[in-house]
Structure formats: structure tokens, C-alpha cells
């Protein structure tokens, strides 16, 4: 009981000391209600910005990974022709592929494999042989020195009528365009959010300076220069911006972790998109953490600059 109350007392004393130290460092009177509202606004904006930037980072990295995966594989599709035996066509195509420089492995999908690929659309097929299913050959290529795919495609079609080489290029292009669009959109959103945060700081600083008009006048008369007065405000609001930014950033990381946890529980994979990215745990990857920290620092810097500019512009209007 004794130790309990004395430790509470010492915490209380420390709190009083801390508040006193903070108070005496600030010559302008801060309005706790405005301060809290400002921190909340900045936190929310940072949260949105961090999530947007994090999603952009994620999608860009995933797109890059998928492009590498797609670039190292091509597919040959052999359509059944009325007068031909498809199995020998497949063997002929596979032989031609194996003999090509830059091809590392060739695998013919069996009839059952093809049926399984179609299962999600057609259901379990009782009589696979009765359907004229196109057949696939999966070809891994050396992405460092890939074969001339256009020439290979022509050679294939010449040797085996009905064989078509699909290098996924149209998919890759579309996918990368999608990722680029998303990146540009995210950058624009980030810019707007940072702008909104800056405006919030500007309004709060102006409000605080209007509220402290008399104090600023007194500081001038007792010999404070503009730089000194500006620092009183600037530091305060930069700190509030940084605090709001940190809260928003941590909230964004926690949200990502929560989303991953939900993904893990419902889909059995922490990865919502099913792409093999991230750490595999519920925690956000380092790329995401870096982006969020960068956003928080950006918000802090912008808050400081916005406050500084506002203070210097407003101080001239006060004698």
C-alpha cells in the first residue's frame, strides 16, 4: 500500500514536472481542444495516405514479380484438328521446343490436366475424351537469354497446324499498365492528402496566432524578434503534425496486420491477393513499413514548413 501510493505520487510528480517543463518551453498559450482536433485530423489523413502509399508499393512490387514470372514462361496451345492425331502433334511441337535455344523445360499437360483446368467453368466432366479440348504445353524459358518468340511461334505453326504460341505479352502489358495507373492514382491521392494536412496546419497556426495576438504583441515589446516568436509556434505545430502522423502511421500498420490476420483466418493465406509477396506472417513487409515511415516523415516536414510559412506571413500583420 505504502509503495503503491508513493509510486503513484512519484509518477504524479513527474507528470507535473513534465507538464511544467513543457509549459515553460512554450511562451504562447496552446489551446488543448484545437491541438487535439488537429492531431486527429492529421492522424486520419496520414492513415489514409499511408494505406494508399502502402497499397501502391504492394501493387508495384507484385506487378514486377508477376511480370518476371510471366516473362519466364510461355504457353503453347494446340487445338484439335479434325484430321489429325493430337497426341503426335503435341509430341512434335514439344520436340521442336526442346531443340530451341533458350528453352529450359517443356511439359505437356495431359488430357486430365486440361480437364482439371476447365473444371471451375464446366464442372467435373464424366466423358473427357468426347470433348475436343485444346491441349497445352508449358514452356519455361531462360529469361536472361530468351529465344526469339516471334520466330519460334512461326516455326511452330508451320510444323504443327493449330499450334499457337502465347507469350502472355498482352496480359503482361495490361497488368503493368494497371499497376502504373494505380501508382499514378496513389501518388495523386498522397499529394492531395499531404496538401490537406498542410492546409489543416495552416488554419490551426493562423487560429492560434490570432488567439495569441496579445501575447505576440507583448513578446515584441519585451524584445523578442520575429524568429524567436515564430519558433514558439512552429515547433509546437510541427510536433503536433508529427504526433498525428505517427498515430496515423501506426494505425495504418496495425490495420494492414489486421487485414492480413483476417486473410490468414479466412483464406488460409496471409496474402489477400494470393501473390507470393510479403513475409508470410501477419506483419506488414519491410517495404510497407518503409513507405509508412516515409509518409509520416513527409507529413512532419510538411507540417513544419506549413507552420513556418504561416507564422512568418502572419507575424508581419501583428505589430
Amino acid at each position: 500500500m505504502e509503495t503503491g501510493s508513493s509510486s503513484i505520487q512519484s509518477v504524479g510528480a513527474r507528470l507535473v514536472w513534465w507538464r511544467r517543463a513543457n509549459r515553460t518551453n512554450l511562451l504562447v498559450a496552446a489551446d488543448p481542444v484545437t491541438d487535439r482536433a488537429l492531431v486527429a485530423v492529421i492522424a486520419i489523413l496520414t492513415f489514409i495516405a499511408a494505406l494508399t502509399a502502402g497499397a501502391a508499393e504492394f501493387s508495384t512490387r507484385t506487378a514486377a514479380r508477376w511480370q518476371v514470372m510471366m516473362a519466364s514462361e510461355v504457353t503453347v496451345q494446340v487445338k484439335p484438328q479434325p484430321s489429325r492425331v493430337i497426341d503426335s502433334d503435341l509430341t512434335r511441337a514439344a520436340d521442336l521446343l526442346r531443340g530451341t535455344e533458350g528453352v529450359t523445360s517443356v511439359r505437356i499437360y495431359s488430357r486430365e490436366d486440361s480437364a482439371k483446368l476447365l473444371e471451375p467453368w464446366l464442372g467435373a466432366l464424366a466423358n473427357v475424351e468426347a470433348l475436343p479440348l485444346p491441349r497445352l504445353i508449358a514452356v519455361r524459358i531462360d529469361s536472361a537469354k530468351p529465344p526469339d518468340l516471334a520466330a519460334l511461334g512461326q516455326a511452330l505453326t508451320a510444323a504443327v497446324p493449330g499450334a499457337v504460341l502465347d507469350d502472355h505479352r498482352s496480359w503482361t502489358r495490361r497488368f503493368s499498365r494497371l499497376a502504373d495507373t494505380f501508382l499514378v492514382g496513389s501518388a495523386a491521392a498522397l499529394l492531395l492528402v499531404v496538401l490537406a494536412a498542410a492546409l489543416a496546419i495552416v488554419f490551426a497556426t493562423r487560429g492560434a496566432m490570432a488567439g495569441n495576438r496579445d501575447i505576440i504583441a507583448v513578446l515584441h515589446f519585451v524584445g523578442a524578434d520575429d524568429g524567436y516568436i515564430a519558433r514558439q509556434f512552429q515547433g509546437h505545430f510541427a510536433l503536433l503534425g508529427l504526433r498525428g502522423g505517427a498515430i496515423g502511421g501506426v494505425a495504418a500498420l496495425v490495420s494492414v496486420a489486421a487485414l492480413r490476420l483476417i486473410g490468414l483466418l479466412t483464406l488460409g493465406s496471409a496474402d489477400l491477393l494470393g501473390a507470393s509477396v510479403g513475409t508470410g506472417s501477419i506483419f506488414p513487409g519491410w517495404g510497407m513499413v518503409t513507405v509508412v515511415i516515409a509518409v509520416v516523415i513527409l507529413v512532419g516536414v510538411v507540417a513544419g514548413l506549413a507552420s513556418r510559412m504561416t507564422v512568418h506571413r502572419t507575424i508581419d500583420q501583428i505589430a
Partner: peptide, 20 residues
């Protein structure tokens, strides 16, 4: 024109404080 949020001591010391 004393500053209400400072103590009496801090008010009197203000001209010295703002001189750095």
C-alpha cells in the same frame, strides 16, 4: 499585459528569456 499562462517569475524573466 502579463501573460496569464506563465507564472509571475516567468513573466518577469520574459525579457531575458526572449533575448536567448
Amino acid at each position: 499585459r502579463l501573460l496569464d499562462h506563465l507564472t509571475t517569475y516567468e513573466n518577469v524573466a520574459l525579457p531575458l528569456k526572449v533575448r536567448g
